[in-house]
Design a protein around this nucleic acid. Structure first.
Lengths: 209, 209
DNA sequence: AATATTTTTAAACAAATGATTAAATTGTTT
DNA sequence: AAACAATTTAATCATTTGTTTAAAAATATT
């Protein structure tokens, strides 16, 4: 009979496993990571993984839930700020979000990859994001459209374009480094630059017709 | 001793395997696909996979090479057209490339995912793309920058932005469908729309300051 | 200190997986 | 038709992989 963890004890073993799993899953994806790899990376006995998390999949789902939350958490808050204009939101959002991506550059490709193979299992976790379409920010854009300040297009285009400008470089970094002849350091400097450039580009796009 | 295929015979068996492998690898990634799955999808005996391709990895590398070529093939040709202006190239490129992506929507996420986990093995295959940075199109952009028609930014930003606007929606389709409340059919219609919208947005971005 | 509980360990299990073998079948050449 | 080569098949092999077990060690409770 499976034992329950009644005391978090040091929390250290459980957390060591979680951290090792997060690192490896994020780098290589669920299917490419073995439980033995995780155990070794965490410096613990293999059986402890199942003792604390029951199965590789349960462990993965925990990691995935945290990762998806991190992926959208910052967005949701900023999207619903009632006290800032549309343009101010764009500035803040892009800067904060690119900062997050610089800290966790492998996060988006991990999430998008797993979302493809496991869309069924992870469908529920997406529900939290449905609200985005009715956020203050989206309403501000739609109002600007009705007022004729911005050409009318399907809101999905806007969301796609904004995400694309922020996220895509991190998803395609190996490709972009090769094509653009930039090394890792230069790449990160360019990502820093984008914190100021992307808002300019997005605003220009929004008004373009 | 491994036998060599001396006659392509019907080419049908070999091609059936290749097609099944392409489909499955593209959908689920290298690590999630088993040789038995490929054999079943192809409707052939398991041993034939090794008879024709020696190993799962050799088969994968063949598929990957073809996929990467398809991913950039259209771009290279258009990028080097001497007889079109920068703006004309943008129109053609976007329209053709999005058409390709509509036909093979899983291609980009597949390539970008495998490029992450296997960057070492696939590094060589990327060399063919290095030339992109010295194409006619890139030179036209750089001339427009020197002429002051376009603000000066690192060329990687331009490449990243253009790729992002074309590719990202296909990489993030499950997410965008959820957030934007669009079904598969509507999504494809929106992608068709983008063939005309993205060039407008890109041109606006290029000039933005 | 004695006892119970929780955590850790080494070993093993069963299933899955990539690959191979040897025989059978099909096709080609002479 | 006979002989040879190429292709296909079923069975098997050796590892790998996720998971479990039972005992030992560490920690907490009485």
């Amino acid at each position: 009979m499976a034992k329950k963890v009644q005391k978090p004890t040091d929390a250290s073993t459980e957390e060591k496993i979680r951290e090792a799993a997060r690192k490896l899953f994020t780098q290589k994806g669920y299917a490419s990571v073995t439980t033995r790899e995780i155990a070794e990376e965490a410096g613990i006995n293999l059986a402890l993984l199942n003792y604390y998390f029951r199965s590789k999949e349960k462990l993965f789902l925990q990691i995935m839930e945290e990762s998806m939350q991190q992926f959208i958490q910052g967005v949701v808050v900023l999207f619903n700020d009632e006290n800032t204009s549309m343009d101010e939101k764009i500035d803040k959002l892009v800067s904060n979000y690119i900062d997050m991506l610089i800290s966790y550059p492998d996060l988006p490709l991990f999430i998008l990859s797993e979302l493809r193979s496991n869309s069924n299992k992870l469908a529920m976790k997406l529900d939290s994001q449905i609200g985005l379409a009715r956020s203050t920010f989206i309403r501000q854009i739609q109002e600007a459209m009705r007022a004729g300040k911005i050409p009318e297009v399907h809101i999905m285009h806007i969301i796609a374009n904004m995400m694309a400008m922020m996220v895509f470089p991190f998803v395609a970094s190996p490709l972009l480094k090769k094509i653009g002849h930039v090394n890792d350091k230069q790449f990160m400097e360019l990502m820093q630059e984008r914190k100021k450039l992307v808002p300019v580009w997005i605003k220009a796009m929004l008004k373009a017709r």
